[in-house]
Amino acid sequence: MDISVVVPLYDEVESLPELTSWISRVMSENNYSYEIILVDDGSTDGSWDMIVKLKEGNPFIKGIKFRRNYGKSAALNTGFEAAKGNVIITMDADLQDSPDEIPHLYRRITEDKYDLVSGWKAKRYDPLSKTIPTKLFNSATRKMSGIHNLHDFNCGLKAYRKAVVKNIEVYGEMHRYIPVLAKWAGFIKIGEQVVEHRPRKYGKTKFGMSRFVNGFLDLLSIFFVGKFGKRPMHFFGSMGTLSFFTGMILAIYLIAEKLYDLSHHVIPRQPTDNPLFYFALVAIILGSQLFLTGFVAELVARSASERNKYQIEETI
């Protein structure tokens, strides 16, 4: 099969007939073998009934229904598991992504040999309350991930080589950082394609301001797990050692200061009168806790079932 189109959706009953018809038309015009995987993330507006109806008239449509709303990441991950195409295209169900982009995205994967191609909506129809925070997050993600050639990590319109989606796990709010997940999994040929951003035709956006806080926390999680997931002691141990020895140096300094005063027959100050005493105490305690955290995390990592699971591209 050439292409799997994975569409996560939540309460998008009005757009589904037009979207699936549009995708099918593009596939037929280009003679692609394909499937459309619609993942209903706990909709309450009759979206699932519409999917069942659409499948009766289009055998290329497949539907997956969650019992409740789990979020876009869960829907994408489930769609990735079900996908059978050599190239996987993801797009939102609100018709703001154009299926006419599919042929070019497909060629970028099959002919240009990219692992992942992410859409960039250079001209957007979103309000400033959404575009400004998005730009800030994209800037932070570029710096932390080292993927400097992407302008928009969160664009729903993306194309993947099959091996990519089968070797990454998307959870939490990680769908915003799939290119980062792909890079940590060893897929480094990541490109970008300018795509059309269409105004929303039906319904309203399902994302609130809380997604920016969650997105930032997930970015930190990706950075930590990707860099130190298999060696947590390197992170916690180094931080703990640095903090502990900083506290010890301050403590030795305070002791030396008191001994100096005694040797010169000067009445020494009480250690608690010096603010450095408290800095030293906190640094020693914090350093010990960080070191112990690293030790426990190392034990957990070494006991994990996937401690020696690595991405192997090819064997001969």
Rank of each mutant, 00 (worst) to 15 (best):
A256Y: 09
D100E: 09
G57V: 14
V296G: 00
S47W: 06
V7L: 10
E257A: 12
S243D: 08
G42R: 01
L220Q: 14
L254M: 00
S303V: 07
D97Q: 08
F60H: 09
C155T: 04
S263Y: 05
F80L: 02
V165C: 05
I37V: 03
D115G: 04
Y32R: 11
G287I: 09
V13E: 07
I190G: 04
I285Y: 13
E196T: 10
A283E: 12
A283G: 14
T44Q: 15
Y125D: 12
T20K: 06
S4Y: 05
K227D: 06
T293Y: 02
F137Q: 13
K230G: 09
L38R: 00
F153I: 04
M248Y: 14
C155S: 08
H175Q: 02
Y171L: 07
I190K: 04
N58Y: 04
A163L: 15
V164S: 01
V87D: 10
N86P: 02
V170G: 00
V5Y: 08
S15E: 12
I37N: 01
K206V: 15
S21L: 12
Q270I: 08
G71E: 00
V194Q: 07
K123V: 13
H104I: 13
Y34A: 09
F187N: 02
D273A: 14
D49S: 11
I312Q: 04
A140W: 04
I102F: 02
Q193I: 06
R302N: 11
G156P: 10
G186Q: 12
F295N: 06
M248A: 14
G57L: 04
R231I: 07
I188V: 15
E173L: 05
I222Y: 06
D40R: 03
S221K: 14
Y34T: 11
P133H: 03
D112P: 04
L54C: 04
V180E: 07
K206W: 14
S98Y: 13
S28N: 15
H148Y: 08
I267V: 14
M144T: 08
Q270W: 11
L16F: 02
